[in-house]
Nucleic acid binder design. Structure first.
Lengths: 339, 339
DNA sequence: ACTGGCACTCATGATGGTTGAGTGCCAAGG
DNA sequence: CCTTGGCACTCAACCATCATGAGTGCCAGT
């Protein structure tokens, strides 16, 4: 593909992103500022269509980019602009400092993402496997119900009701908690789980039952957040013509509620450390075949623990969205690292 | 209004709810099973329109009920059918037993409400003012950050990060927690707040700082859930023709996200103990002027603590929806009362 | 290699007629 | 006085037709 073709492709995609309608040769030649005739442009466009970058919705409309076209655009043609001062100020204001509660920070990040990009924003909740276990408490709630509370070094609190086979007294539970804190406190949760499994096989003393339950709880804790993600601003999709056909929209909403496959997709994008794009069919996930996902992993204390981003139609202003997602990821990571 | 007019009104509204289109004299006379002519029916309908029960969308369409018409319908004409065995079974299955986590039960209730009614479902989180304080824990997280954890008798756990002016040692915090538990444990949260306020004014000993913080935390705890409500299934509104005009829908979604006025409306409906309907403009809340809200308060241990219900277009099958909302409220109350 | 010309396509929007369900009103009949 | 049939009128919805205009592919000439 020669320089002129690249320029035309870039111009076409930019114009389509801006206007949302198919772009024809006349429009394009005017916008691109080249001194050639529409007929020439048509030839070039025909070539680009053959190579899979463009497609015509019908014979006599202009052309729109395919997912291949968008991919080439973002990889080779797009020059990302730095985050505007205004946006950066807003981001900092909303998530720049540590809120008292992790959940609140995540919420704020999801919300601001959605507002600034005018797409649906999502945040995968941070993995807790590497968090340090700070404190454990067992509280007898009723006859055979024990409330277990875990606290991590970042102040995240997780609790679970455990039904036990036999009643536990307050003293027993206090003893168990003391033992638990002394033995496993100050270690990363993943180590705690691992050690618990090992220890439980070896010793079988009085505390076994409650410890076993606690282990199950710990497991759940680590497993549960595999599924969790926040998503907000789906309503932004309402006035996007390419998704408006309520058939498509319903499907998308259902898929997003389902979350499972989505989470799988995102986990994959946590491997890198950069902004990542899934354009159209690239996600390999049918309900998203008309959509793009822009995601960026975020890190706490230098370790990637989650991923956030936006979901919208393929036609999105990547130029602004990429730095926004990137910036949000960085600020969220920083906010969660504080304290 | 004579018997025949009532019968016709009932028939018309039922038909309109079923079909969604304006009902004309011919249709109506066929459906109502009366042995009178369409012309007669037209006269009756004209009267009903004069009295404000009906309205014509345009000259040559049939008639549809106004909010006044619906109100008369539900108050005087509707005979509520008992919950179907099938629905009841489903409800019990989803929220009939206590899940380990209050949040999960609330979620389940919101979800099943939305599914069964095919409207958006909401649940106002239970007031905790009357819950018994079971346990308090203060954990030093960092230099001047204390994590405070409250546990109520139902196993609800609330935590808040408190930034203190001066550092606290672990021993100090343990002492404070012991004192706190001994003094205020076993009392309803509202009493705790009250007593804290009183006690803080009287005594000004060493613990003042942490107790003052604890008091602030307690306040927050009780105030925060004034705003909280879960809402789910807004997407059901997508294929309701009367809301489809994306203008209206946007407005509604925005209003529902905002929640504030909605919560105010619902708090009012917590006073009674019965199912309550706000039809159209009755809510006095502009974005809901085309919608109805069906709500029912739910009780824990015999005391009303929250309210749940559905939001949808005025045209909803009240006959089925009212018992569904009612039944959900009862089961949710029961589920939260257990344990 | 580029360009102008040409025939062709097709979504869009305007026009207009038809249909059908529905209305209000009136005069006649029980 | 209520009810009814009749009648003229209204209006959304549907359909077909047509013009418009933006756009295309192809070809022959520079």
């Amino acid at each position: 593909m020669d320089e002129r073709a690249r320029h035309l492709l870039k111009s076409l995609i930019e114009q389509h992103i801006a206007k949302g309608v198919p772009v024809g040769s006349r429009q394009l030649v005017r916008d691109a500022g080249l001194n050639i005739s529409p007929a020439t442009v048509r030839n070039v466009m025909a070539d680009l269509e053959d190579e899979g970058y463009l497609i015509s919705p019908h014979t006599s409309a202009g052309r729109i980019p395919t997912h291949v076209g968008y991919r080439f655009f973002v990889d080779a043609l797009l020059r990302v602009v730095p985050l505007s001062a205004e946006s950066h100020r807003l981001l900092v204001h909303r998530i720049g400092f540590r809120a008292p509660d992790t959940e609140q920070v995540l919420h704020a990040a999801t919300g601001i993402l959605s507002e600034l990009t005018r797409m649906a924003g999502f945040v995968r909740v941070p993995r807790r496997a590497t968090r340090i276990l700070r404190h454990v408490d067992f509280i007898a709630l009723h006859e055979r119900e024990v409330l277990a509370i875990f606290v991590t070094d970042k102040g995240d609190v997780e609790n679970r009701l455990i039904r036990t086979e036999h009643p536990f007294g307050a003293a027993e539970l206090a003893q168990a908690a003391n033992f638990f804190n002394a033995t496993y406190g100050g270690r990363p949760l993943q180590d705690v789980i691992h050690n618990l499994q090992r220890d439980l096989q070896q010793s079988r003393h009085e505390m076994d039952r409650i410890l076993r339950s606690a282990m199950a709880l710990g497991m759940e804790m680590l497993e549960e957040d595999q599924q969790r993600m926040l998503i907000e601003g789906e309503f932004q999709w309402l006035d996007m013509p390419e998704l408006a056909g309520s058939e498509r929209l319903r499907e998308l909403l259902a898929a997003v509620r389902q979350k499972r496959d989505l989470v799988h997709l995102l986990d994959e994008s946590m491997r890198g450390s950069e902004v990542r794009l899934f354009i159209g069919e690239e996600s390999g996930y049918a309900p998203l075949s008309d959509c793009s996902v822009v995601s960026a992993p975020y890190s706490v204390d230098g370790e990637v623990v989650g991923v956030l981003g936006v979901i919208g139609p393929m036609r999105m202003p990547y130029q602004q969205i990429i730095p926004l997602v990137d910036g949000t990821a960085q600020l969220l990571g920083r906010a969660l690292s504080q304290s």
